[in-house]
């Protein structure tokens, strides 16, 4: 379970606070752009230090740890794969910075098969379509096998049908592997489609998550304002 304990972040005239727990299998963070969704994700992933407060995982503080030591993996908006490496070499980096052994190679092939890219490990990312690149990146985070997966508006470059397909795949595979997911999105329909709980980020604060159905069925004032804007 992820806990954000009295987190505050200040940078020039940007301010953000968060003090809540996130425990659902798939949680979506939605809110207007510039509200601080990605900032929150970056603090959880370890790219950004909060001005004050702590990030905890299962009761252990993780705020001081470097990104790679945290129990999280992350899918960025873009640059999820090194373009100069084959897909296989990219996936191997999820496990080791050395040459992968036979066992690891087998796991790579299995992960590729899971995301529907069986046999494509020898290609460079540039030789893949946008959807295939997303799948390869997903295989990479699955191989990292961290208990929490962060999605920073992934697949936003894909068309709606392809994006839905990818989100379904993420939700299914994460659930199969027992990985919790925290997704930043500015598309409420994405949240509605895959999230168990939704939390709103607006007016400089993260609001506690609520079950998806109730969240949209009885929208709060802030949510009304956001959806009305959108």
């Amino acid at each position: 379970m992820l806990e954000l304990r009295r987190i505050a972040y200040h940078q020039e005239d940007f301010h953000l606070t968060a003090d809540t727990r996130i425990s659902a299998g798939f949680t979506a963070l939605i809110g207007p752009s510039g509200a601080g969704k990605s900032t929150l994700l970056n603090m959880i992933a370890g790219f950004l230090a909060p001005t004050s407060g702590q990030v905890l995982w299962d009761g252990q503080e993780i705020s001081g740890l470097p990104p790679a030591k945290r129990p999280v993996s992350i899918l960025f908006q873009d640059n999820n794969l090194f373009p100069h490496l084959t897909v296989r070499a990219n996936l191997a980096l999820a496990m080791t910075t050395r040459r992968p052994d036979a066992d690891q190679l087998a796991r790579i092939e299995a992960a590729l098969a899971q995301v529907g890219l069986g046999g494509m490990g020898g290609r460079r990312p540039a030789a893949l379509s946008g959807g295939q690149q997303g799948r390869a990146a997903l295989a990479r985070v699955l191989l990292q096998d961290r208990p929490l997966m962060l999605l920073d508006e992934p697949f936003s470059a894909l068309g709606p049908a392809l994006r839905s397909e990818m989100l379904d795949l993420v939700a299914r595979l994460a659930a199969e592997q027992g990985i919790r997911v925290l997704m930043v999105s500015h598309a409420p329909e994405d949240a509605r489609r895959v999230a168990d709980e939704v939390a709103l980020v607006s007016q400089g604060a993260l609001h506690p998550p609520q079950p998806t159905q109730g969240f949209f069925a009885t929208p709060s004032k802030q949510l009304q304002a956001y959806l009305g804007d959108g």
Binding site: A45, G46, F47, P66, P67, A68, K69, V72, S73, I74, F76, N79, N80, F82, H84, L85, L93, A94, T97, Q144
Partner: peptide, 27 residues
């Protein structure tokens, strides 16, 4: 800027960062 965060989440640091990420990008 483009690949620093990806390298950081994969724990690629120090010499490995040069070998795997930066030098190939700088070819």
């Amino acid at each position: 800027a483009d690949f620093g965060r990806l390298a950081a989440t994969l724990g690629i640091t120090g010499f490995a960062l040069w070998r795997i990420v930066l030098l190939p990008r700088l070819r």
